[in-house]
Nucleic acid binder design. Structure first.
Length: 800
RNA sequence: GCCGAUGUGGUGGAAUGGCAGACACAGCAGACUCAAAAUCUGCCGCAGCAAUGUGUGCGGGUUCAAGUCCCGCCAUCGGCACCA
C-alpha cells in the first residue's frame, strides 16, 4: 500500500480537532509543563517556514512530554495590533479588524495543516476587546504605581510613519518599520519607567536558564556600569557641576570638563558666559543633527570653550576650563564629564584639537601618541601615588571622595525609559483622561475595556496626532473624579504592549473577571520553556520580564520571572543561502511543501536540517531525503512479524530510546532523527521488524511525524491511539552490547582492531591486543612503558 | 572599541578528552527497466597504483591520547557603542 500522506494527515487532523485531543485542564494528578512559542503577527503573507521551524521544536517536545505523563499547556495566539494592518487600511480602505480577522483565519488554517498540537480552545487575539481590556488594566496599575508617566523629551520621531518611536524601535537612527531616518523632536509623551526595574531585571537574568549570548545581550542592553558621581565647583558661578565617571582613580589627570550642549547649567550661567553667541550657534548646529549623526562623527571632535566660567578640580584645587561638545550626551549620566585626556581616547583627541594639557597619572603608555587605557603605577596622583592595582585605586579614591564630601559611589544604566505611546489607530487606547482640574485620571476599572472606536479615515494627523483625535464622541468625556468636562488621551499603545503579558492570558483565556484566576496562575506558571527568535531577546523579552516583575511586585503573579528557560531558533535561509525575502524571490511557502511532501516530511525536515539554534539554508533535496525516510517507515508494515524485541535488537532499541529521549530535551532534534534513521536502516538490513519494535519505533517518531505514526499504530492494532501511548523507557544495562570492537593503538596511532567482551578486564584485553600480529610487529624489540585500556573504546600501548 | 557566539569533507552537519566525518544531501558505479523516473545495492575527506601518509581556521602547550582542555593569534556572524 502506498503512503498516502494527504489522506492520512487530513484524517488525523480532523480526529484531533473533533476529539479536542490537545485541550488541557488543570489536573493536579499530573505534573504540568508549559511550553511556549512566540505567537505571530498575522500578516497578509501567511505562515513562513521560519514560523514552522520555531513552532515545530516545542511541538515535538510537547508531544513527547504528554506521553511521558505531563499535563502540557502548548498554546497559540495572535499578536494582532500593529502598523502593517493599519498601513494596509490606509492603502485599501479595508478596516484593520477585517483584514486582521481574515489573516488570523488564514494562519489558523495553515497551522492546522501542519498538525500542531496547540490547545485551540485557548487562542488569543491581542486586538480583541476581551484581551486588550486587561492590557489596559495592567497599564492602569502601572499608572497607579507611578510607573506610567508623561514627560517632555526629545523623542525619536519617524516623519514617514508619523509616529514617536522607542529607542528600541529606532536603532541605528532608522525607523524599524519603514527604515526612514529618525528625527529628534521635543514632545510630551508617555513613558513606562522600566529604568526603575534595572536591578530587578538583572537579578532575574541571573536566575533563569537562558543561553549565554541571550543573557549577555540583555545585560548589555540594560548596560549597568559602576563608578562615582563627583561634584566640581564652578569659579564665576554658584553652580556645582556634577559628573559621572567609571574611573575616579584618574581624577588627578583631569585637565578640563565637557558638558552636553543641552546642559541646563549653560542657561543658568548665561549672564557670566562671555561668548554666549558662539555657544548658541554651536547648540543650534547640534540640534539639527539627529542622535544618529552625532554618534557617527567619531573622530572629528567639535566643541566650544565656555569663556567666563571654569571649574575647580576638587582633589587638587586646580582651575580647569569647561567646554561644550556633542560627544557628551544629555541622556546618559549627568550630561557632564570630567576629561582625562591621558587615559581616555576621546578626551585625548579633544585635548589635542583644543591644545589642552595632557597629564599622565598612570604609567605604562606613551601619552604623546595616544591615550593609555591600560594598567600601571599611579603617578602625579597625591594619595594614590605608587598604587598599581586599578581596583584598589578606585576603592581608595571613593573613600577619599566620601570622606571629603565631594562625591560618592554611583551606578548608571544605559537602558532608558520606554516611550509608550503611538499616534496611530490600530492599538490599545491608553485609558487615561486629561482633566483640566484633576490632571491625568485613569479610566475607572469597571469601564474597561476602553473601546477602540470605529473610524473611516486611518491617516494619522499631519501634526503627529492619532486618528482618534478627530473623533469628538471619543475625545470629549467627563472626568471620573470631578465630573467636569475632560478629554481622552488619543494615543494608543505600542505594538509591544499586548505581547508583554500574553503568556499569562493563555492560562485562563476566557476569564472576564480577572486577567487569569489565581488557581490557573498558580498551577501553570511559570513558562517552563520559551522558544523564539533572537531578534526578540532585547525588546519583547525585556519588556515582558519587566511587566511580569511588576505584576509580581503587586501580588498578581506568583513567580518573579516569566520564563524559566529560553532558546532561540536559527534562521531558515533561502536555498541560495541568503536571508529569505520577497524581493529576492527565495521564499519557501510551507503549504507548497505540504502539498508535495506532506506535513510530516515538512516537520521532520525543519528539525533535521541542522543544528536547531543555527541558521541553515533550505534544501529541497534534503526535504526529499526526509520524505524517503517516511516512505521507508511506511514500508516497515510490509515486513512486520509478531514478536518482542529480537535479541540482536535489544541494545539498539534501548540505545535509541535513550538518545531520542535526551536529544528532544536538549534541542538536538537533528541527531534524534538521525538515530531513528540509523535504526530503520538496521531494520531494513535485517529484512524484518517485530511488532514490539515497530510499536516503540513509531512512538519515538511520533513527536516529529504524528500523522503517519498515528496511522501505523492504528492499522497495526497496537491498541488505543498513539497520542495516549506511554513513552518507552530504556534500561541502562540493556544499552550495552555484549561484544564490542575496540581500537588498538601503539603510541596513540591506530594499528588494528580487536573484538572483546564488554565485561573483559583490562589485563585480559591488553594481552589480547599484544597478541595481534600487527601489534606484535610494532612492539617487537621495544620497551612497553605503559598500556591503557579505555573500557569498550580502545587500547593504547606506549612503547619506547 | 566592548560583549557574545562560531570556525570540521563538495553541502547541511555528527563526535561524555578515547577509532574524526554518525545521519542526510550531492556525486560515482551497479541492479531492475526497451528507456527514463522511482526503488534497491555498493563506493565516497585529501594525496597515492599501493603500502602508507596526511587531515577539524593558524601558532604554541598540557596529556599515553586533543575537534574537544590551556595560552597567543586570525577570520566570520550577531548585539551594543563618542555610555564618560
Amino acid at each position: 500500500m502506498k503512503y498516502d500522506f494527504s489522506a492520512i494527515e487530513a484524517k488525523w487532523q480532523k480526529f484531533w480537532e473533533d476529539n479536542k485531543t490537545f485541550e488541557v485542564k488543570i489536573d493536579r494528578s499530573k505534573p504540568k509543563y508549559y511550553a511556549l512559542v512566540e505567537f505571530p503577527y498575522p500578516s497578509g503573507a501567511g505562515l513562513h517556514v521560519g514560523h514552522i521551524k520555531a513552532y515545530t521544536g516545542l511541538e515535538a517536545l510537547s508531544r513527547k512530554k504528554r506521553l511521558e505523563g505531563y499535563n502540557v499547556l502548548f498554546p497559540m495566539g495572535f499578536d494582532a495590533f500593529g502598523l502593517p494592518a493599519e498601513n494596509y487600511a490606509i492603502k485599501t480602505g479595508v478596516h484593520p479588524r477585517v483584514s486582521t480577522d481574515r489573516n488570523i483565519a488564514h494562519f489558523s488554517e495553515q497551522m492546522k495543516k501542519v498538525g500542531y498540537s496547540f490547545d485551540w480552545s485557548r487562542v488569543i487575539d491581542t486586538s480583541s476587546e476581551e484581551y486588550y481590556k486587561w492590557t489596559q488594566w495592567i497599564f492602569l496599575k502601572m499608572f497607579e504605581n507611578g510607573l506610567a508617566f508623561r514627560d517632555t523629551a526629545l523623542v525619536n520621531y519617524c516623519p514617514s510613519c508619523k509616529v514617536v518611536l522607542s529607542n528600541e524601535d529606532s536603532q541605528g537612527g532608522k525607523c524599524d518599520v519603514c527604515h526612514s531616518d529618525i528625527v529628534q523632536l521635543p514632545k510630551e509623551v508617555w513613558y513606562l519607567r522600566i529604568t526603575a526595574y534595572c536591578e530587578k531585571l538583572l537579578e532575574g537574568i541571573a536566575r533563569v536558564d537562558y543561553p549565554p549570548y541571550v543573557k549577555a545581550q540583555q545585560e548589555n542592553w540594560i548596560g549597568k556600569s559602576t563608578g562615582a558621581f563627583v561634584n566640581f565647583e564652578l569659579k564665576g558661578s554658584d553652580e556645582k557641576l556634577r559628573i559621572y565617571t567609571t574611573r575616579p582613580d584618574t581624577l588627578y589627570g583631569v585637565t578640563f570638563m565637557v558638558i552636553a550642549p543641552e546642559h541646563p547649567v549653560i542657561d543658568r550661567s548665561a549672564n557670566v558666559i562671555k561668548n554666549m553667541s558662539e555657544v548658541e550657534a554651536y547648540r543650534a548646529e547640534c540640534a539639527k543633527k539627529t542622535e544618529f549623526e552625532r554618534t557617527q562623527l567619531v573622530k572629528d571632535k567639535t566643541g566650544v570653550k565656555l569663556e567666563g566660567i571654569s571649574a575647580i578640580n576638587p582633589v587638587n584645587g586646580k582651575e580647569i576650563p569647561i567646554y561644550i561638545s556633542d560627544y557628551v550626551m544629555m541622556g546618559y549620566g549627568t550630561g557632564a564629564i570630567m576629561a582625562v585626556p591621558a587615559h581616555d581616547q576621546r578626551d585625548w583627541e579633544f585635548a589635542k584639537k583644543f591644545g589642552i594639557d595632557i597629564i599622565e597619572v598612570i604609567k605604562g603608555g606613551d601619552i604623546t601618541k595616544e591615550a593609555y587605557t591600560g594598567d600601571g603605577e599611579m603617578v602625579n596622583s597625591g594619595v594614590l601615588d605608587g598604587m598599581t592595582n586599578k581596583k584598589d585605586s578606585i576603592e581608595k579614591m571613593l573613600g577619599f571622595l566620601e570622606e571629603k564630601g565631594i562625591g560618592e559611589k554611583g551606578v548608571q544604566y544605559r537602558m532608558k525609559d520606554w516611550a509608550f505611546n503611538r499616534q496611530r489607530y490600530w492599538g490599545e487606547p491608553i485609558p487615561i483622561i486629561h482633566c483640566p482640574h484633576c490632571g491625568l485620571v485613569g479610566v475607572p476599572y469597571d469601564e474597561l475595556p476602553l473601546r477602540l472606536p470605529d473610524v473611516k479615515n486611518f491617516e494619522p494627523g499631519t501634526d503627529g496626532e492619532s486618528p482618534l483625535a478627530r473623533i469628538e464622541e471619543f475625545v470629549n468625556c467627563k472626568c471620573p473624579k470631578c465630573g467636569g468636562d475632560a478629554k481622552r488621551e488619543t494615543d494608543t499603545m505600542p505594538q509591544w504592549a499586548g505581547s508583554s503579558w500574553y503568556y499569562l492570558r493563555y492560562v485562563d483565556p476566557h476569564n472576564d473577571k480577572e486577567f487569569a484566576s489565581k488557581e490557573a496562575k498558580e498551577y501553570w506558571l511559570p513558562v517552563d520553556w520559551y522558544n523564539g527568535g533572537n531578534e526578540h531577546v532585547t525588546r519583547h523579552m525585556i519588556y515582558s520580564q519587566f511587566w511580569h516583575r511588576f505584576l509580581y511586585d503587586i501580588g498578581e503573579v506568583n513567580t518573579p520571572e516569566p520564563y524559566m528557560k529560553r532558546t532561540c531558533i536559527g534562521l531558515v535561509l533561502g536555498p541560495d543561502g541568503d536571508k529569505m525575502s520577497k524581493s529576492k524571490g527565495n521564499v519557501v511557502d510551507p503549504l507548497d511543501v505540504i502539498k508535495v511532501y506532506g506535513a510530516d516530511t515538512l516537520r521532520t525536515y525543519v528539525l533535521f536540517m541542522g543544528d536547531y539554534e543555527k541558521a541553515a539554508p533550505w534544501s529541497e533535496s534534503s526535504v526529499t531525503g526526509c520524505k524517503r525516510f517516511l516512505d521507508r517507515v511506511w514500508g516497515l508494515q510490509d515486513i512486520v512479524v509478531d514478536g518482542d524485541y529480537r535479541p540482536e535488537f535489544v541494545s539498539k532499541m534501548h540505545k535509541t530510546i535513550k538518545k531520542v529521549t535526551s536529544d528532544i530535551d536538549t534541542i538536538k532534534y537533528n541527531t534524534a532523527i538521525a538515530a531513528l534513521m540509523t535504526l530503520i536502516n538496521d531494520f531494513t538490513a535485517s529484512g524484518k521488524i517485530t511488532k514490539a519494535e515497530l510499536r516503540d519505533f513509531c512512538i519515538l517518531l511520533y513527536p516529529f511525524a504524528p500523522h503517519i505514526t498515528e496511522e501505523i499504530y492504528q492499522a497495526q492494532g497496537f491498541g488505543g491511539y498513539i497520542h495516549d501511548a506511554k513513552w518507552p523507557k530504556y534500561d541502562e544495562a540493556l544499552c550495552r552490547d555484549d561484544e564490542v570492537e575496540v581500537a588498538v593503538q601503539v603510541n596513540g596511532k591506530i594499528k588494528d582492531k580487536l573484538n572483546v567482551s564488554t565485561t573483559a578486564e583490562q589485563d585480559e584485553v591488553i594481552e589480547a591486543a599484544k597478541a595481534l600480529e600487527r601489534i606484535k610487529a610494532e612492539i617487537e624489540g621495544r620497551q612497553i612503558v605503559k598500556a591503557i585500556y579505555v573500557k569498550g573504546r580502545l587500547v593504547n600501548i606506549v612503547v619506547k
